[in-house]
């Protein structure tokens, strides 16, 4: 157990980097995913097609492919990064947004069609119907699946450790090498710090869900 106490500075540094990756990628994924879902229900055929193709491809391929793409393929196409963290954020948000898009779309489908008809009948444009009436109701109903996706994102960020980003898992690898006799405790420490993010996330989600629930 001493190894955890001794290595607290590394753990803390890794924890903050994991948190940073998850928060930034999470915010980008929420925005992009919601836009993808909006495109999926839009009257413009090209937007619907693009959204569907994106979600199908990204959702059905492994996260590591997204990482290799961001870290290896993008630089060859001329997109270079000073830090691997940027590549990690691109990969994580691109991957997660596909799942967010599907969750939001299921929420949109759960809003009764009469809500959109009423909004259109008072003269709202498609963008207003979506942003003022449909999405606010849809997002509230998809908080539980959305939180699952965000929890998965926190854990998925560990793949960045394999791409030279010193987040929790990256430090975990390093510490395990240095303390070959205490690998178990090193991993317990890593797990603890992941739980420090994911458990409160679940709790906050529960509170938010109760607060914004809409009665019909």
């Amino acid at each position: 157990m001493d190894v955890i106490i001794e290595s607290l500075p590394q753990y803390w540094d890794g924890f903050l980097r994991t948190l940073f990756l998850a928060v930034v990628s999470g915010i980008i994924a929420l925005v992009v995913g919601t836009l993808l879902a909006a495109a999926r229900v839009s009257p413009v055929t090209a937007l619907r097609g693009f959204s569907m193709a994106y979600v199908e491809v990204v959702r059905n391929t492994p996260l590591t492919i997204a990482f290799f793409f961001a870290a290896v393929v993008l630089p060859r196409l001329g997109v270079t990064f000073q830090q691997f963290e940027i590549a990690a954020i691109i990969a994580l948000s691109a991957y997660t947004s596909a799942f967010i898009a599907e969750a939001v779309r299921s929420g949109v489908n759960s809003v009764p069609v009469g809500q959109a008809e009423a909004a259109r009948s008072i003269g709202m444009k498609f963008s207003q119907v979506l942003s003022l009436i449909i999405l606010p109701q849809a997002l509230r109903t998809v908080i539980p699946p959305m939180i699952n996706i965000l929890i998965a994102l926190v854990k998925n960020s560990s793949v960045a450790g394999a791409f030279y980003v010193l987040e929790l898992f990256g430090y975990g690898k390093q510490l395990a090498n240095e303390h070959g006799d205490a690998v178990m405790w090193v991993l317990v420490g890593v797990a603890f710090f992941y739980l420090l993010i994911t458990v409160p996330l679940g709790y906050v989600a529960h509170q938010v869900e109760r607060k914004v629930a809409i009665a019909r």
Partner: peptide, 25 residues
């Protein structure tokens, strides 16, 4: 047909539905 002009025309036509359709949120 669709789009902005239809929206502005709908603004001049009030509609009351069987199922009320008040904005639930």
């Amino acid at each position: 047909e669709e789009g902005k002009e239809l929206a502005s025309l709908r603004a001049d036509v009030g509609m009351v539905f069987q199922s009320f359709n008040l904005f639930a949120h």
